[in-house]
Simulated scan of single mutants.
Amino acid sequence: MGRRRGRTALDTLAALAESAVDVYGRDLAQELAMPCGGMSEATTGRQVTTLLRKDQPPGSAEPDRSTGPVTSSS
Results as ranks from 00 to 15, higher is better:
1 M>H: 01
3 R>Y: 07
4 R>K: 15
4 R>G: 01
4 R>Q: 14
4 R>Y: 12
4 R>L: 12
6 G>F: 13
6 G>C: 11
7 R>C: 09
8 T>H: 07
8 T>P: 01
8 T>Y: 05
9 A>I: 04
12 T>L: 15
13 L>Y: 08
13 L>S: 10
13 L>M: 09
13 L>D: 08
13 L>E: 10
14 A>K: 14
14 A>D: 15
17 A>N: 15
17 A>G: 03
17 A>I: 15
18 E>A: 15
18 E>F: 14
18 E>C: 13
18 E>V: 08
19 S>F: 14
19 S>C: 14
19 S>W: 13
20 A>V: 10
21 V>L: 13
22 D>M: 07
23 V>H: 09
26 R>T: 12
27 D>N: 07
27 D>V: 06
27 D>G: 01
27 D>Q: 11
29 A>P: 00
29 A>K: 01
30 Q>Y: 00
30 Q>M: 02
30 Q>F: 00
31 E>K: 09
31 E>F: 01
32 L>P: 02
36 C>G: 00
36 C>N: 08
37 G>Y: 05
38 G>K: 04
38 G>P: 01
38 G>I: 01
39 M>K: 14
40 S>P: 00
40 S>G: 13
40 S>E: 04
41 E>I: 01
42 A>I: 10
42 A>M: 08
43 T>S: 14
43 T>H: 11
43 T>Q: 12
44 T>K: 11
44 T>E: 08
44 T>Y: 07
44 T>S: 12
46 R>P: 03
46 R>C: 09
49 T>S: 06
49 T>A: 10
49 T>W: 03
50 T>G: 02
52 L>V: 03
52 L>H: 01
54 K>L: 11
54 K>H: 03
54 K>T: 07
54 K>E: 06
54 K>Y: 02
55 D>G: 05
55 D>H: 05
55 D>M: 04
56 Q>V: 11
57 P>E: 06
58 P>M: 08
58 P>S: 10
59 G>V: 05
59 G>H: 04
59 G>P: 07
59 G>N: 04
60 S>D: 05
60 S>I: 02
62 E>T: 06
63 P>C: 05
63 P>Q: 04
64 D>W: 09
64 D>M: 11
64 D>A: 11
64 D>R: 08
66 S>W: 14
66 S>P: 13
67 T>H: 11
67 T>M: 13
67 T>E: 11
67 T>S: 11
67 T>G: 13
68 G>V: 13
68 G>N: 13
69 P>S: 06
70 V>H: 10
70 V>P: 12
70 V>K: 10
71 T>Q: 08
71 T>H: 09
73 S>C: 13
73 S>Y: 14
73 S>I: 10
